[in-house]
Nucleic acid binder design. Structure first.
Lengths: 344, 344
DNA sequence: ATGAAAGCGCTAACAG
DNA sequence: CTGTTAGCGCTTTCAT
C-alpha cells in the first residue's frame, strides 16, 4: 500500500524541506540557483515524498505539454505499414531521451467513398494545446496535410520529403530510397548478374518513382541494358508473381523490387519454375520487413532509428529556437544481404 | 494564415456570446442547463472562434488527462511484436471513441545483463498524473509489473491473463489461445489428416503451454494419438525447420504451430523434401502476421480490435465507477484458412 | 438559468 | 540566494 494518498505537491516538499515553494521549483528547474546545502535538503525531501511535478499544472503554466502527436492512419500504404511498428518504437525512444512522450491519435473512421480529412484529428489537438508539435509520416502522394498544417502555423516535422511542394519550408527527414535501390542493384551486379530487372509499382507514387530511379541510374552506371526488364504493378504478391514470370521470360536473372511484397511475389515465380533463389536468380526487396527476415530475403533497410533521432532533433530545434531551423535531412538506407541474392 | 494568435479561451467565447465564462463552460459540459436560445448563441461563438477547451487547464481542474499510457518494451516476444502494430492501432481507435488518447512511453534502455525495471517509466507518469490509467500488455512469464502496479494502486487494465497470480483482482482481457489451436487442429482433421503434430515452444511460457493444451485436447477429442508428434523448440525459423523434419520422419502429415515463425520453419522443411504445403501436408501458424498473409499460411488470428474495445470498456468502468469492475474477458480467436492447410 | 468567487499546482517576474 | 505575488484556463461550489 504505497500510494493511497494523492501524489505529493510542491507545497508538501517545501514544507518538509523548510523552504518556500518557489525554492523547490528552482531546485528542479534551475538547480544552479540554490546553495548546495539547500539543494541537498530539498532533494532529500523530494526523494522522501516521491515527488514528481504535476504534469497538468506545469503544462498550463509553461504552455508546453512535452508531448508530440503522431497520427496513425487506419489504412496506410502496405509497405509503410510494415515499417511503422519499428518507427514508432524508435520515435518513442528518441523522444524519451529529450523528455518527450508520444501521443497517438487517429483521424477517425473514414466513411466509405469519402475523402479523408487531411487534418482529421490534428485540429483539436492543436487548439486544445494538447501537444507541442506533430510528427507527420504520410507525406506520400501529394498528401495535403503538410500544406494545411503549415497554413495553420502548426509546429511539425515530417518523415518524408515534400515531394509535391517545392515551397515547403518545414523541417523534414527522409530516406534516400533511390540510393538504397542503386546499392541493391550494384550488389546483385557484384554477384555476377547482368539482366537485372526492376519490379516496381504502378506510376503515381513519388516514392516508387524515386526507387525506380535508383535502379535505372545504377544500371546505366554499370553499362547494362534495361529494355524489357521493367514491370510496374500493384503492390501485391500475386501481381509481383505474374510480373516476375514475364520478366523471367525476358531473360532476367535478378530482381530488384520496390517492396518486400513484390519480392515475395518474385520468389513465388521462381518456385513456380523450380528455380533456386540466390544461386540461380537473385531477389532483393525493400523495407526489411519481418517477411524478409523470416524468408531470408535480401532487402533494403531504412535507418528508422536514425530517422527518429533526426526528427526529434529537428523538433527540439523547432520548439526552442524562434528562427526557422529548416532542417532537411536525407539518410542513406543499408542493404541487409541474405541468401535470396547470394550464391554462397 | 489561419491561426497566428494563440487559441481562443473560454473568456473569449464568453465575451463574444455576451455571457459569463461559466455559462460557456456549462454549454460544453452541461448543455441541458442552458436555455436553448442561449445555447445556440454560445455555440455560434464557439464555432466562430474555433474554440476548443484547453487540455492542460481542464486536466488540472478535473484531475483527468483523458490519456491512457501504453508502454512499448524494446524487445518483446517476437510473436507478440508482430501483432503489436495491429493492437496499437485498434487501441488508439477504441480509445478515440470514448474521448481518450494513447500516450506511448518506453521503460528506457536496459543495461546489458541488467534486470529491466518492471515499473520503468510507469512511476513518473503515475506521480505526475500524466495519464489516467495504463494498458499493460506484456503480462507473460510472471512479469511482476501487474503486481507492482496493483500495489501502487495504479489504475490499469491488462491484455493478458494474470497467469501466475491467482489473487489478482485487476480487469483483464485475453484471447483463448487454447481454443484457437483446438480449432486449428479440428480444421486439419477435417482435411483428412490424422498424424497432426504440435510444433511448439520450449516449456516455461504459459502462453505456449496454453496453446499446446488446445492441440492436446482436440487430439483427444478426435481420438487421435499424440505420441512422437510433438516438438518444443525456440521460436525461430531454423529451429522450426529442424524440428518439423523430425516430425515428418515420425509420419506427421500436418503441423499446428505455436507461432507463424515456427510455421514458416515447417514450410521450409516441406520445401526441403519437395512436399507441397496444403495438398500433401497441412501447416497452421499462429497470429496471422504479415508473414502468414504473404505466404498463404493458414493462421490463428487474435481479435485484437475486439480486445481493444473490451479493454477500453473496462478502463472507462474502472475510472468512472468507484466499485471494482473486475472484468475478466476471454475472447475466441478465429482461423484464417489459406492454402497451406487446404487441398483445394 | 446565469453569474461571482475560489482554487487546481505550477512557474515567471520581481522583491528582499 | 530565497520568498512573495500573480495568474495560466478551466470547473466546482454557491448565490442570485
Amino acid at each position: 500500500m504505497e500510494n493511497p494518498r494523492p501524489p505529493a505537491t510542491l507545497a508538501d516538499v517545501a514544507e518538509r524541506a523548510g523552504v518556500s515553494r518557489q525554492t523547490v521549483s528552482n531546485a528542479i528547474n534551475n538547480p544552479d540557483l540554490l546553495r548546495p546545502e539547500t539543494l541537498v535538503r530539498v532533494q532529500d525531501a523530494i526523494d522522501a515524498l516521491g515527488y514528481t511535478p504535476n504534469h497538468a499544472a506545469r503544462h498550463l503554466r509553461t504552455r508546453s505539454s512535452r508531448l508530440v502527436g503522431l497520427r496513425l492512419t487506419p489504412a496506410q500504404e502496405f509497405t509503410a505499414n510494415m515499417a511503422m511498428d519499428r518507427f514508432v518504437r524508435a520515435l518513442v525512444e528518441a523522444a524519451r531521451e529529450v523528455g518527450y512522450h508520444v501521443l497517438l491519435f487517429s483521424g477517425g473512421p473514414v466513411a466509405e467513398g469519402d475523402v479523408p480529412d487531411p487534418l482529421g484529428g490534428y485540429d483539436d489537438l492543436l487548439r486544445s494545446t494538447a501537444v507541442d508539435a506533430f510528427v507527420v509520416t504520410d507525406t506520400y502522394l501529394g498528401n495535403p496535410q503538410t500544406v494545411e498544417l503549415a497554413r495553420r502555423r502548426a509546429p511539425f516535422v515530417a518523415f518524408g520529403r515534400p515531394w509535391d511542394d517545392p515551397d515547403a519550408t518545414h523541417p523534414w527527414v527522409d530516406v534516400d530510397g533511390s540510393s538504397g535501390v542503386a546499392a541493391a542493384t550494384t550488389h546483385v551486379r557484384g554477384q555476377g548478374h547482368e539482366r537485372i530487372a526492376w519490379l516496381g509499382w504502378e506510376p503515381g507514387s513519388r516514392i516508387g518513382e524515386d526507387r525506380r530511379a535508383g535502379w535505372f541510374r545504377a544500371m546505366a552506371a554499370h553499362g547494362l541494358p534495361t529494355a524489357g526488364l521493367e514491370a510496374a504493378v500493384a503492390d501485391s504478391v500475386d501481381a509481383g508473381r505474374a510480373a516476375a514470370g514475364v520478366l523471367l521470360d525476358n531473360g532476367a536473372t535478378a530482381f530488384v523490387c520496390a517492396s518486400d511484397t513484390l519480392a515475395v511475389g518474385a520468389l513465388h515465380a521462381l518456385g513456380d519454375r523450380g528455380i533456386a533463389p540466390g544461386r540461380d536468380v537473385a531477389v532483393v526487396g525493400f523495407d526489411d520487413s519481418q517477411v524478409a527476415q523470416v524468408m531470408g530475403l535480401t532487402s533494403v533497410r531504412q535507418p528508422l532509428e536514425q530517422v527518429a533521432v533526426e526528427l526529434v532533433g529537428a523538433l527540439t530545434d523547432l520548439l526552442s529556437a524562434a528562427e526557422h531551423p529548416d532542417a532537411e535531412v536525407l539518410l542513406t538506407p543499408s542493404l541487409e544481404v541474405r541468401r535470396s541474392s547470394t550464391r554462397g
